[in-house]
Amino acid sequence: MAPLAGSTHRTQRAWSVLDQVCDPEVPVLSLRDLGIVRDVVDQGDAIEVVLTPTYSGCPATEVIERSVIDAIEAAGLGPARVRLQRAPAWTTDWISADGRRKLREYGIAPPGLVDKRAGVPIRLVDRRVEPVACPRCGSAHTERLSAFGSTACKALWRCLACREPFEHFKPI
């Protein structure tokens, strides 16, 4: 999300500060790359940053709140506070193009667009998982080992061409 037309100098500076605040579990992504910053509001007494949590149980959420406040205050724009806004629910479709490139370079296959059929009943027979390109060698000859990985947002994959395991940021 980009700064709105009515934004003040203070909020514009806060937006640029948020470009430098990284996700603690995927440190190549800034919070803006991740698409979790909904708004930055100058409330007079404080800068309010509105964030959308990624997963219900993501333990990084509290670390992110803390680092947002610290970063804005360190830039001399404070005091700052964070408001969590659940609706609309975060989707990986909000990860920026730049964020997707950074993920791939970091060795994590970026998410494809969220499958609109995800709402249909479970797939049993037609259970093709969309192929994910290996972030190291680019081959699409890969297989999923598990839908769940080292963090809530990632799945475990393996490249059958270069034999390297890799993580996939799963579409949600």
């Binding site: 949590p53 997963y55 219900s56 609706a87 629910a89 975060w90 989707t91 995800a118 479970i122 839908a147």
Partner: peptide
């Protein structure tokens, strides 16, 4: 209740993964 609705919209996406895992 809009807060419950917001929690549900997020949780629904997670529950789909859980169900698919169990069904597999």
């Amino acid at each position: 209740d809009t807060e419950l609705a917001a929690i549900a919209a997020k949780a629904l996406k997670e529950a789909r993964y859980h169900q698919q895992h169990a069904a597999d």
